[in-house]
Design a protein around this nucleic acid. Structure first.
Lengths: 147, 147
DNA sequence: AGTATAGATTATAATTATTCTAATTACAAA
DNA sequence: TTTGTAATTAGAATAATTATAATCTATACT
């Protein structure tokens, strides 16, 4: 567990270090692999900032996205999920319970494809759909598992 | 260009071949690589079916999804996009203009990861973010290109 | 340290995408 | 041709997100 200072992180990307922003960063760090939605972040902040508004959460997340501090994940469910982990990693998405499990894969070799399309890659993401161990054991909602 | 009959496709997956469903399939086939949203499909259908409702489009898309006839794509923009192409393929997503370009990659080797997590894969998807050739040439909205 | 100001936050309204509900209509089997 | 079941429709409802306008505050400059 390395030292990590939210204030420093914000300075580094030229964003004003407001208490709300620091708190959002800390919540994201705290929740870790939970990939929270905007609402979950909002709820977590309510305790420390009873007056916080949804707009602040969305604004903050947008500036963090622009600064490259986090990734936005949009899968099966309606609400976007946010992921602070910027090192290359991917997800297993369970189609039954919606769980999003972090995994680490070797770099996908796409060099040739990119060259062909003259496409400037800034990042990539692998999404693997299926049924997780727990759901398979429970064998719930079989009908929901399409594909 | 192989022969393709919407009515047959529907029969094959045990869905009633209603005029609306046939039309949705044909629109998806026609639009091809355009990855239309529900709204774009709705607009395309309006000509042939002035009385069509959004609910029908959404219901139809949902049955097609359940039947495995198409994929739902949720990326940067808010609305889901639908993709009839069910053979394994992936996308280049331009962060500037939002264009979604079909690409074909060799199977990603994830066997070991799946075994570790005891995860039953039903499908996977590779999303590559970046800037497409056209947008790079125009160098528009530089600031929007994060990551 | 005190202050001006660009930028951040807030409450609220508006918008957008999607789903639900209830009534009507159409298909397909007997 | 009836009859049951499923599909379609209009419109209301919900959920997620964005826009607006007023107020506040972190930072830079005296």
């Amino acid at each position: 567990m390395d030292h990590w200072d939210a204030m420093e992180v914000l300075k580094d990307v030229n964003l004003r270090a407001t208490p709300q922003r620091i708190a959002v960063l800390n919540v994201l760090k705290m929740l870790g692999q939970a990939h929270p939605t905007a609402e979950e972040i909002y709820v977590a902040l309510k305790q420390e900032f009873p007056a916080i508004s949804f707009a602040t959460v969305y604004n903050t997340l947008k500036s963090f996205l622009d600064a490259g501090l986090l990734h936005e994940l949009r899968f099966g469910d309606k609400a976007s999920r946010y992921d602070l982990n910027t090192q290359a990693h991917h997800h297993l998405l369970c189609e039954v319970c919606g769980d999003l499990i972090d995994i680490y894969l070797p770099e996908v070799d796409v060099a040739q494809v990119l060259r062909e399309h003259e496409f400037a890659m800034s990042g990539y993401h692998v999404e693997i759909r299926g049924v997780c161990k727990t759901c398979r054991e429970h064998t719930l909602h079989k009908a929901d598992t399409h594909l």
